[in-house]
Design a protein around this nucleic acid. Sequence first.
DNA 1: TCTGGGGTCCTAGGACCC
DNA 2: TCTGGGGTCCTAGGACCC
Length: 437
Amino acid sequence: MSTPRVLSPATPNVFALVDGNSFYCSCERVFNPSLNNQPVIVLSNNDGCAVSRSDEAKALGIKMGDPLHLIKDIVKRNRVRVYSSNYALYGDLSARMMSTLAQFTPEMEVYSIDEAFLSLDGFGNRDLSEYAREIRRVVRRDTGIPTAIGIGPTKVLAKVANRVAKKNNRNDGVLNLCDRATQEEVLHTLPVEDVWGIGARSAAKLNHVGVRTAKQLRDANLDEMQRLLTIVGRRIVLELRGESCLALEMIQEDRKQIVCSKSFGRPVYTLAELQEAVANYVTRACEKLRRQDGICHTMSVFIQTNRFKDGPQYYNSGMIKMDAGTSSTIRLSAAANRVLEQIFREGIEYKKAGVIFSDIRPSASVQFSLFDDQGQHSQDAKVMKVMDAINARMGRNTLKIGACGNTSPSEAPAWEMQAKMRTPCYTTRWADLLKVK
DNA sequence: TCTGGGGTCCTAGGACCC
DNA sequence: TCTGGGGTCCTAGGACCC
């Protein structure tokens, strides 16, 4: 991610933010139209919390992040349709949505799985709202995903516009905030915590000094806002004023950090089980690392108890640094095992573990110390290449390291997360292809 | 019984060096 | 008893996002 640069005020920018409505729920609906007009929620990993809610589910009072077990009455009473998350499906539909959007502008930033910023610079001779409505129509037609679109002279204002367009459902899911009069009207009624980049902590600080609406934030003293909210807050104020500080980032930069951590389906007590779980997490993280052709020089491993449970808590982590970076699953898994042996304590009910790769550099930058065996490193790379090729062709985990365990589907290990309500991978697995009778 | 995961950026403060 | 100051680098923690 490059540092945000200040654009010349001489070039008027126009940003459109396109955002998939209740994205995961909408993906489920694409392949199951009987879910239309029904309350639907999609759960986080391990079937824990509601992370996506259809409008009907929101209307029932289900909040973002509500734990399933605390809303089970609402779910039951209203026959809410509940799904485990199916990232293979969502990722695939996301890619379709992005390629559809790319037809509408030469400059686009894929911001998240369900959002993209489009540059509409130089489209000024068109009716931008009409153009946005056309984008919505085509995305809906070609992917089945409903969207909302906000337009503004800065990213922050485009975000504001998108939020209001979605909330009010006015103008057919489109709002153009390019003109000053509309900005005045919208910012006046928008709570400051609804501004992109203002979270709960910052909102509390702002309320404390009497800033409650987006408009008040926009008109506040710049230096005072910077003292309160650092340089980040200063940029937000400027963006609200229509001064673009955040540029479109069209190139997806390589990850600086790769994390793989998961809660266990059931409590885990033994070192052997932790090692098996972590070997699987290292495997995932290494796959991501090699996909960006990187090597990592620092790895952290952590294990912890259930933080929501009463009783003694335990958290421990260990870090290992490597002079010569590596992306070898075998090496990193062995290293993770050594860390686990050091941080493991007997007699504890573990609920979660994870690995964090950091200090990631391009593989071309690999530096060998005097004591490293260069031959071994190039041998590792060859083995990984073969493993990746086989798994790409035959499916994930066809070839894996022994430390990952050998589990039969009938007897899932305790550490394996729950996903009891997962829909088929309609678009990414031949066996799951939808059958039309 | 059951409460997610994966990222980024910014800042303050310590370590270290000259 | 007196006992500098400034610069850089690194890291942990905070805050935010989807």
